[in-house]
Nucleic acid binder design. Structure first.
Lengths: 242, 242
DNA sequence: GGGCACAACTTGACTATACAAGTTGCGCGG
DNA sequence: CCGCGCAACTTGTATAGTCAAGTTGTGCCC
């Protein structure tokens, strides 16, 4: 079953925006150009553009071509899944150092995190230090379901994007849940982030699911405050309940 | 200049959803019913529904009427502006204790927060402890622009919603910016939240603007971790950049 | 060079129509 | 009572068209 045309159009434009080919502030092709390019009526083109506007990727007004929004508007939570993309978007140099990557028996905690049934008894766990302009910024603990994490055992995790590698090996990510809170640095955090035990860290946890709803990845990312925060801008239609 | 029909339709449905008239899980009128009700073609109706879907308020699929989404999907950041609404939504009892409400000369920090020009020399500042089921959960420091804060000096801030009071007195809120990070508890935090100085607190800062873009309120809310966190669920169209 | 008018371009909103895909309800037969 | 088939309903996608509102570019005149 082929994807609807309006989704194909939106996806292609989204890719061109995210890759940087269409930079913030740049005009996108006009509606009539897109209609010609896709041999489409105006309906699907307009629907695709409406979708991208709703995602915050496009801005503009009547009579003018749509332009790519500035990153600050589009990204606050889009980048929750990619540390490197976020760092690059703020003009900093991302880096990483994999401290540990191991297949091991699943602890009760790991089982809970991945929602494992009693049948599966191993997971892949990773500890990774994330750098910003060469300095420690975040310590990332990841627990992968075995079938996913095993793929990484054959990959040099400091050579490139784990996500790209997993995707190119058939792993399909479908949904993610994020929880943001604050924690006190434990001994491992303190050692790698260069802070005192008990110091406040901003924590972002993430449960990533595949198309069947199975949790394939759990992350616990601990950020040094002052370097990183999460931001959101509410638009003009401020809604409020009291 | 009348608002476009599709916006009117969306707004009316949004109101019915937010008021509870259309409860989570409830079906909304069919497209053809809405077309008849609004004497409209299918286009504007579909556009309104698409907008509400993009906002996370509606769910459903082909062949079935749209249904109202469960609050968990729609609310993560909708409730950033209302502590009471959030507490109530999780089945807890919100409470509050105003520790201080004062009109005072604007410090350089207050000036920076509100973006004050040299002309204005006073602000209204408030310190408030927020309770959850009777226990301390969050310490809130608020700096109001003088014209807004002055209204509160005649209000019993522990008797009800400041927001409602300000709105009923003509204050129009238009937009807000939120920044979430982690901080170490200072002496004031420690005294009121019952923690050790230096303990990690989850901090949410907020700049609230009126329709003219002027910052009328700055908040610095510090939450006890373990009680409060921020969450977000990404839908099926997981987007990722590496 | 600047300002104005007009044409061309562009998006926003809406109507009408058609077909595909999916859901729900009803009637009939076993 | 249950299952199946079919009709009616419903949403999803797309084409074609029209008009309003806004922007941009060009040419002409001062």
């Amino acid at each position: 079953m082929p994807a609807p045309l309006h989704e194909l159009i939106a996806e292609q434009l989204r890719g061109r925006i995210r890759s940087g080919e269409l930079a913030p502030g740049a005009s996108i092709p006009s509606e009539s150009q897109l209609c010609a390019e896709w041999q489409s009526s105006r309906g699907p083109v307009r629907q695709a553009l409406a979708t991208l506007r709703a995602e915050g990727l496009l801005a503009g007004g009547q009579g003018r071509r749509a332009v790519v929004s500035t990153p600050a508007l589009a990204q606050p939570f889009d980048t929750l899944l990619s540390y490197s993309a976020w760092a690059t978007s703020i003009g900093r140099t991302p880096g990483q150092k994999t401290l540990e990557l191991a297949r091991r028996p699943a602890s009760p905690l790991a089982r809970e995190r991945l929602g494992l049934e009693t049948g599966e008894d191993h997971v892949v766990e990773e500890l990774r230090l994330r750098l910003l302009d060469g300095d420690p910024a975040m310590l990332e603990r990841t627990t992968y379901a075995l079938r996913v994490g095993t793929l990484l055992l054959d990959f040099d995790t400091d050579s490139g994007s784990e996500w790209s590698y997993l995707e190119s090996h058939g792993v399909a990510f479908a949904a993610a849940r994020h929880v943001i809170d604050a924690v006190a640095a434990d001994a491992v955090d303190a050692a790698h982030l260069g802070v005192v035990e008990g110091s406040p860290l901003l924590r972002q946890r993430r449960w990533v699911r595949d198309a069947d709803g199975a949790v394939i990845e759990y992350d616990d990312d601990r950020y040094l405050p002052g370097l990183v925060n999460f931001s959101l801008e509410n638009g003009p239609a401020l809604t409020h309940v009291s």
